[in-house]
């Protein structure tokens, strides 16, 4: 499946204003026009246009209650919203509800406080591959590599309920990464983490982009916002603002505030 998406993307033309020509690999991945979420009479947000490119990282900021989580959950197919039009990998998606299989396979949402299934750490990470019908022999090495990547190989036999918040977050990231999603939606991955646990999670994010995913991170974490090459969305008063990215010139240290 990923092969066909790749060929579609190669054939595609630039159509995203946010794509900077500096990175030749970037193409339009997801384009949404007219995205509205209502709770009864209340309009939570009304987004004219949302463009996400391949091989790109975005932070989504905004006040508590602005709808950051809801926006990610809508994009990840866990909540419904009104959507005028949606393009994915340069193809028009005609029906958004029920959430199309092609999007389900390509977009993975990770909760702010991820929950782990009461199996083993390894089975948690392999779950998405197993439900896709991958044979166990193919799943095992991928899971091993992902556990190494996330630094949780030593936890393989630990009861998932006994992991710390940071460990759970890293297992959840590995669980999403093995699926090689085109788009990863991370809901406040560093919330309630501090010190080494937070640094470990932050260090994993650029490697996800290097591995070929685009990442949208809802967060308040200034260090995440300040990561090099991070583009910025801000939800304010129900509208989405697009901010210019932080400079990623290697001669300048990344901005930390």
């Amino acid at each position: 499946m990923s092969i066909s998406i790749h060929s579609q993307i190669t054939a595609a033309v630039y159509e995203n204003a946010n794509v900077r020509p500096r990175d030749e690999r970037r193409r339009a991945l997801l384009g949404v026009r007219g995205l509205r979420k209502r709770y009864g009479p209340r309009l939570l947000f009304d987004i004219d246009r949302l463009e996400i490119a391949t091989h790109s990282a975005y932070v989504l900021t905004g006040m508590n209650g602005a709808g950051k989580s809801t926006l990610l959950r809508v994009l990840g197919g866990l909540e419904r919203a009104e959507i005028d039009s949606l393009r994915f990998a340069c193809e028009d998606v005609l029906r958004v509800h029920p959430y199309p299989r092609a999007l389900r396979r390509a977009i993975v949402y990770v909760h702010q406080h991820p929950i782990l299934f009461s199996t083993s750490v390894a089975d948690n990470i392999g779950y998405g591959l197993v439900v896709r019908g991958e044979p166990p022999a193919a799943v095992r090495p991928v899971v091993e590599a992902a556990m190494e990547w996330a630094g949780v190989a030593h936890l393989r036999d630990t009861d998932p309920a006994r992991l710390s918040g940071g460990e759970k977050q890293r297992v959840a990231l590995a669980r999403a990464k093995v699926l090689q999603p085109r788009l990863l939606l991370l809901d406040e991955p560093t919330a309630n983490l501090d010190g080494a646990a937070r640094e470990q999670v932050i260090a994993l994010i650029p490697t996800l982009v290097d591995a070929g995913s685009s990442v949208v991170i809802a967060c308040h974490d200034r260090e995440l916002i300040g990561l090099p090459d991070m583009q910025r969305f801000k939800l304010r008063d129900g509208h989405l603002e697009v901010r210019s990215p932080a400079p990623s010139d290697p001669s300048q240290p990344p901005r930390h505030s």
Binding site: G76, G77, L78, R104, V108, H111, I115, F117, G128
Partner: peptide, 10 residues
């Protein structure tokens, strides 16, 4: 989140 995680993972 159990059901949502399973759904999100496909």
């Amino acid at each position: 989140r159990y059901a949502e995680t399973a759904i999100a993972l496909g």
